[in-house]
Design a protein around this nucleic acid. Sequence first.
DNA 1: GAATTAATTGAACGTTCGTTTTATTGTTGC
DNA 2: GCAACAATAAAACGAACGTTCAATTAATTC
Lengths: 214, 214
Amino acid sequence: MARTTGSDGEKTEAAVREAAVNLIARFGYEAMSMRQLAAEVGVQAAALYRYFPTKEELLFTLMREHMEGLATAWEAARPADADSAQLLSAYVRNHIAFHIERRHATHVSNMELRSLSPERLTQILRMRTAYEKELRAILRDGDETGAFSIDDTGLTAMALIQMMTGVIVWFRPGERLSIAEVTATYLSMTMRLVGGKIDGREEKNVHEHAQLRA
Amino acid sequence: MARTTGSDGEKTEAAVREAAVNLIARFGYEAMSMRQLAAEVGVQAAALYRYFPTKEELLFTLMREHMEGLATAWEAARPADADSAQLLSAYVRNHIAFHIERRHATHVSNMELRSLSPERLTQILRMRTAYEKELRAILRDGDETGAFSIDDTGLTAMALIQMMTGVIVWFRPGERLSIAEVTATYLSMTMRLVGGKIDGREEKNVHEHAQLRA
DNA sequence: GAATTAATTGAACGTTCGTTTTATTGTTGC
DNA sequence: GCAACAATAAAACGAACGTTCAATTAATTC
């Protein structure tokens, strides 16, 4: 047999991407076989090669588009005229929302970096670094203007990223906490971490302020 | 050929463990082949099966001993008579020291859980949960006695664990910061996160206090 | 120094892997 | 309705995988 009735390239490619993200997130890139992926899509393994030349290229595509999506989401979410606290707030909100929404893709992008060739690894890491650089800039600005009080902006940025991204490890939709509640608590913790102050009010008010906006 | 001069079972097994931790941390469990591991040790692949019946058993052994080591280290580091701040301080110090010292083993224990059979996965997760439970208890006690001021102890515990364990992602010995400096900053950030207070002094002093002890 | 045990080699087993090739069929444009 | 094209199936490729087995030699025991 050959072409099946109703087959459509675009639909198949989309199905491959989605199945690949789920399988890689669950079993890992090396553990997922092309035959397993094909079976999940409902197709023969050879058909996958019409859309992705190699297995690694498939992985790279998934990661690159995930990182591009993250950058795009932040560009859209970043407020134009905002003080440091508002910027940081927007960054945290966007980061948590994006990562909860794409738990599996995030897992893939974080855990399978070692399966990329050096050049592709560099490319992904460059995108990640650029994204993290935005956070460092926000923290540095806020520290210099007195909105924050930070010991080490580099370390604080890394700690914040790890803390926020860590949400996907334990968060499951529909359990004890809603996304809004989780976001509110993480905003509160973020403001504590950076020693945030607003208009001279003390820290506790910052938390309440952050929670109201979440 | 057969047995080689100077061969010693104990030494070979130790060499296998060490090589396995490094290879799995670098390439991943699935990507590491038994032949690759054997070559690293300087032995034929068949020789590995004298010490570990299967590849998965080898992985499980590495993980279990890592978790046992973590529990043992905390038992030894936990102060007998201490208030909440001191307990938390000891927990953070021990956690960071242990994980920096065993970066590769930590990477393996965190990233390769999905390669374990369900029963073995359960066993490792039980050990991890027990360890994290200690932190939650410290946070809850401190919150109830007023030493800390925490919104959600469960979330704060997870955030702290993610933040601290994340050190191994970027920390490299001999770079910008020493272990002591990193620990001091993380202690400071920890006390901020839990809203730590000592004798009614305000938060900033807690940080300085923590840094002096690091 | 012979017998026993410990440690390892080298070859082989069956399976699965990513990928390629070729043929075949559905779909589309004229 | 016929050519051109798109999308797939089916089979096969060599390589690599985890693992087993028999043979062999070093170390130990008595």
